[in-house]
Computed example of a mutant assay.
Amino acid sequence: MGVLWKLEPATAAKHRLYQRYLDAWWPILLQTAQSTGYTRPRVTLLDAFAGPGRYQDGEPGSPVIILDRLLHHDALDRMQLSPQRVHLVFIEKDRARYEHLMAELHARFGPLGDLPVRVEVRRGEAGLDSLPLLTELGAWGHPILGIFDSWGSVNVPLDVMRRIARNRSSEVITTFGPNWFSRREDLNLDILDTVFGGRTFWTPADEELRSDERWRIWLTTYRDALRRAGFGYQLQFQLVPRTGQPLYLVFGTGSPAGLRAMKDAMWKVDDRDGESFRDPRTRGAEADGQLNFFQMDELCDPELVELVTQRLKTGPAVVETIGEWLLTETARWMPKHALKAARQMRQDGQITVTGAGKLTTKSRISL
Rank of each mutant, 00 (worst) to 15 (best):
A317L: 00
I351M: 03
I351E: 04
Q347I: 12
E306Y: 06
V305A: 12
E303W: 01
R332L: 12
C300G: 07
E306G: 08
G323D: 05
Q347C: 11
P316R: 10
L304P: 03
G315T: 02
E329F: 13
Q344Y: 07
G315E: 03
G349C: 09
A317S: 04
M334F: 04
K336F: 11
M345P: 00
Q350P: 03
W325H: 10
E320D: 13
L312W: 05
A317Q: 06
T309W: 12
A331W: 00
L312Y: 01
A342E: 07
M334K: 12
G315L: 04
K340M: 11
W333Y: 14
D301M: 01
G349W: 06
T309Y: 09
G315C: 05
Q344C: 08
D348C: 12
G349V: 02
E320P: 04
V318T: 03
A341Y: 00
P302E: 01
V319D: 01
L327M: 11
E306R: 06
T321C: 06
E324D: 10
T328D: 07
T309A: 15
A342K: 07
P302M: 00
T321D: 13
A342L: 08
L327S: 09
Q344D: 05
E324F: 07
T321Q: 11
T314E: 14
E306Q: 10
V319S: 03
A342D: 07
